[in-house]
Write a protein that binds this DNA or RNA. Structure first.
Lengths: 212, 212
DNA sequence: CTACTCGTATGACGATCATCATGTCAAATT
DNA sequence: AATTTGACATGATGATCGTCATACGAGTAG
């Protein structure tokens, strides 16, 4: 380590960073579509344009990749999901997020979909390290949804938790089912339920100042 | 193949049936706690008191076991979950089911827990065969919840779908998270949300109107 | 120009897996 | 009593996996 500042200036460091980015992209996508242990290092590195041996120049173990790729998926996906805030009320924001989440396009795009839903069962079976990372990203998402509308409001956080549970469960069920008809029905019904929860949250909110 | 009727009367057939039952029990439990492909045949058969080779006297492949064990888990678990009907109203029934589902005991008992939640991510990645089985069991559960209260009612089925999505999502999130505090909060919040949905369903069933 | 650094490629290791061929022995049939 | 059946055990096969030792080669520093 000659100088810590030129890490991004040298050609070699830039090449390694590009490789790392490809590994993270491939890892995040494959783990969401094939599971934490279902995504193997060999095919993953091949997708990244490298061979399996090069993996250990970037991560000491597969578990470390799982942690990094999971967070990487949210770092790149969260801004796309939340978008710029232009909703007029708290209830409207919750409804809009449910619409963005519970639809056919998101359901069918497993590699780029929400990691909370795609890796929920895997996280339940994973070690405490991964679950801590899962919780960290979940808390960040809850904050990102709630903060612009109700900073530090516990009731609004509860609203968001319920909405996310409904969305994660609805998306998971719609994916687990075989027939297109039932799958679409699940998505539609959960959207309606999300609207019901959002309206109920609006009337119950102890701090109604920010909404409307 | 002398007589097809005495298959259950002979000592050998009874022994095989007992072995099959142990394999199904072990398979259903291990697949819920370790995943569809995470549960290996070797350890599974050892838990059933047999060796790995004996497996193929009962199932032609591991996939066939997955189908049978998944259904087996519901055949033995559904009566325990639904219990005898003694609720006075549709909303009360939905709330009671949410209470039975969204609690610490169910969360921590992964091997005997609800297969919909434990295998949701796995089903999304599985082939159409397993997803068809998943859908079949889901439809049976929806029917078993709804039928005693609203036979053939589409609105009641929608209520049940939304409740199950909320329950599956809430339980999955509570398992995927590291800290006990957040996990319990998720369960509590989702119980409250389930009650909100149940009340909204009650007012919607008898009197049309409100929001959609 | 020389020596060193280090990301990557190659190949191998042991472990684990699903699957199957073969042997064995008790129960069932004749 | 003799024969057949079939559930189960044993062991092997080939595939796949994570991990690592080693070697190469381009970039960097002196």
């Amino acid at each position: 380590m000659s100088s810590p500042t030129d890490r991004t200036t040298t050609a070699r460091a830039a090449a390694k960073q590009a490789s790392l980015a490809r590994i993270l992209d491939a890892g995040a996508a494959r783990m969401r579509s094939e599971g934490l242990s279902g995504a193997a290092i060999g095919p993953l590195m091949q997708e990244a344009g490298l061979t399996h041996g090069a993996f250990y120049a970037h991560f000491p173990s597969k578990n470390e990749l799982a942690l990094a790729a999971f967070s990487h998926g949210f770092s790149s996906g969260r801004p796309r999901w939340l978008g710029r805030i232009r909703d007029v009320s708290w209830a409207a924001r919750l409804k809009r997020l449910a619409q963005r989440y519970l639809n056919q396009a998101h359901r069918d795009n497993l590699p780029e979909s929400c990691g909370f839903a795609a890796l929920a069962s895997d996280a339940a079976r994973a070690g405490p390290q991964f679950r801590e990372r899962y919780e960290e990203e979940l808390r960040r998402t809850l904050e990102a949804i709630r903060r612009p509308f109700a900073d530090g409001d516990d009731a609004a956080t509860d609203d968001t938790i319920a909405l996310m549970a409904l969305c994660v469960g609805g998306l998971s069920l719609s994916r687990a089912v075989a027939s297109e008809a039932l799958s679409m029905r699940i998505l539609r019904v959960c959207q309606t339920a999300a609207a019901t929860l959002a309206d109920a949250a609006d009337t119950q909110d102890s701090t109604p100042g920010k909404s409307k």
